[in-house]
Simulated assay, not measured.
Amino acid sequence: MALITRIFGKGKPSIVGTERFRKATTPVEDHPRPVRAMVYREASVTYESGYVRKGIVLDYSDTGVRLRFQTNEGLPRLVTLNARSVGVQGVAEVIWQKGSEAGLKLLG
């Protein structure tokens, strides 16, 4: 009996608050992703310092692009994107980066 008490404790089970239950069962609004065009075109990003880095556009939409670079260098938060071959250019925010790939969201 002492072993069971050590493993499971002595107290009564705690009551789960209704707020926790409600939060777990609340449906999440579903936002459809924009349609993305798959391509393999050259692009470049320019840092605030003026450094230009070339990459390849893997897919794009009206709101952003997914780029692949030759190296795994980290990107700054904001860059100027120049992907004229797919008709996308302007200031972009780096949303995610994993290895040599990055997702950029166009601002404005």
Rank of each mutant, 00 (worst) to 15 (best):
R66T: 14
A43S: 06
A43H: 00
G50H: 03
P27V: 11
P27R: 14
K54P: 02
L78C: 06
E19F: 01
T18K: 11
R22C: 03
P32R: 15
V65L: 09
I15E: 12
V28Y: 06
S44L: 14
D30L: 08
S44P: 04
T71L: 04
G74M: 13
V88C: 07
E73K: 11
P32C: 15
A83R: 02
H31G: 09
Y60E: 04
K54N: 04
S44E: 13
T18I: 10
V28A: 04
T71R: 07
S14H: 13
Q70E: 13
T18Q: 14
G64K: 05
G17S: 13
P27G: 05
D30C: 03
H31D: 11
A43G: 04
R41C: 12
N82V: 05
Y60G: 02
R68V: 04
R22L: 07
M38K: 15
E48C: 11
S85M: 15
F21I: 08
S85G: 10
V28N: 03
S44F: 14
Y51C: 07
N72L: 08
G87C: 04
R53K: 14
N82R: 11
T71W: 01
V16K: 05
L75F: 09
S14I: 10
S49Q: 09
N82M: 12
E73Q: 14
P27A: 04
T80H: 04
Y60S: 06
L75P: 01
T25F: 13
G50F: 07
T25R: 14
V16E: 15
I56D: 12
V86P: 01
L75H: 02
K23A: 11
T18E: 08
Y40A: 09
F21R: 05
L58I: 02
R77S: 09
T80Y: 01
A43R: 00
L78E: 06
P32K: 15
S44A: 09
S85I: 15
L75V: 12
G17Q: 13
Y51S: 10
V45A: 10
T71N: 06
S85C: 14
E29N: 10
R84I: 07
L75D: 03
L78K: 10
L67Q: 01
V45E: 01
E42H: 13
K23V: 02
L58T: 04
T71D: 13
R20K: 12
V35W: 10
D59T: 14
F69W: 12
Q89F: 11
R36E: 08
V86W: 01
S61Q: 10
V79R: 00
L81C: 07
I15G: 01
D30N: 08
